[in-house]
Design a protein around this nucleic acid. Structure first.
Length: 111
DNA sequence: CAAGTGACAATAA
DNA sequence: TTTATTGCCACTT
């Protein structure tokens, strides 16, 4: 427990990610905005620190371009893609997620 | 306290 | 359209 405040923010990120339904995905920027911050990097750091991979579907969080995270800590991007496909997410030939079909924007907490 | 690094995103070329 | 650079903000050293 080094940064209590940040930890609180992390919890908010996890909670919001959990609200994303299966077969849908969201972007770092969307989560950041939903939490009231303009910086998507914070969300990325939060998910990297993600202590509960089973509770937090970080695999449903992708770049704004639909690209997968480069450092998925649970088996690599390959595992992430496999998991998304299993939930019904369709991938493009480029290896990107079809944002137009599966992009999900979470609601802001307390709204 | 200052500088470096990073699971990002927007803009420029 | 793809690659490179800049900006943002937090975390680590």
């Amino acid at each position: 427990m080094k940064y209590q405040s940040a930890t609180n923010f992390f919890e908010q990120v996890y909670t919001l990610v959990r609200t994303v339904p299966a077969g849908k995905i969201t972007t770092y920027g969307a989560l950041a905005k939903a939490l009231g911050t303009p910086d998507a990097r914070r969300v990325g750091h939060a998910l990297h620190s993600n202590p509960d991979s089973d509770k937090t579907p970080c695999h449903r969080v992708v770049f704004t371009d639909g690209r997968l995270a480069p450092g998925y800590a649970f088996g690599g991007p390959n595992e992430q893609m496999r998991r998304l496909q299993f939930e019904g997410v369709t991938f493009l030939t480029d290896g990107r997620v079809d944002l137009s079909k599966h992009l999900y924007i979470p609601k802001r907490l307390g709204e």
